[in-house]
């Protein structure tokens, strides 16, 4: 079982349930994480449920398809099949910086603590870690670097030579 970090803390239980099968099969009161396709096909029906709905993006998905939905989604998850598939980093920044998404942005997949620093800079604030990875020990990796060069989600102005913004983003 994977573990979960959110807002720089270890989270015990994950309220979100992945939808298996069609949108009609969903138990009404659960918080559902659905694939982009399902969301686009059954948006209104999903929103009528009493549980919350989040969208799971795959690395090939175009985040612009959620541009009109950023206000009503409490969770967008981006799947990283492996750390080396870096598309999700761009997707995270696009959701935050271009589409103005402000809800929870979660990185999913077989990740280790080594991804956290980059992910947080790209706007992610919750993280699945693969089984066997110690989430409490992983937390210090958010502070692996005292300073950075570029602007990113955590830090708009790249040239004022200061440390990445602390806990407020991640």
């Amino acid at each position: 079982m994977h573990s979960l970090i959110s807002k720089r803390a270890v989270v015990a239980g994950d309220p979100w349930v992945r939808l298996e099968g069609g949108a009609g099969d969903a138990p009404p009161a659960t918080d559902l994480l659905v694939p982009l396709r399902t969301w686009l096909d059954a948006r209104d029906r999903l929103l009528d449920r009493c549980g919350r709905v989040g969208v799971q993006l795959e690395p090939g998905d175009d985040p612009a398809l959620l541009a009109g939905d950023v206000e009503c989604l409490p969770l967008v998850a981006v799947h990283f099949p492996a750390l080396t598939d870096g598309r999700g980093f761009s997707i995270g920044r696009l959701l935050r910086e271009r589409h103005g998404y402000q809800g929870e942005l979660r990185a999913t997949g077989p990740l280790t603590r080594d991804a956290l620093f980059y992910l947080a800079r790209c706007g992610f604030d919750s993280f699945e870690l693969r089984e066997g990875e110690d989430p409490a020990a992983a937390l210090s990796e958010f502070d692996a670097f005292e300073a950075v060069y570029q602007g990113a989600v955590d830090r708009g102005a790249p040239f004022d030579r200061r440390a990445p913004a602390a806990a407020d983003a991640a």
């Binding site: 870096g86 980093f89 761009s90 980059y118 950075v148």
Partner: peptide, 13 residues
């Protein structure tokens, strides 16, 4: 060099 060093978006191209 500075821009590319630990660029968070482009570490896994």
């Amino acid at each position: 060099r500075q821009w590319s060093t630990l660029h968070p978006e482009f570490a896994f191209l």
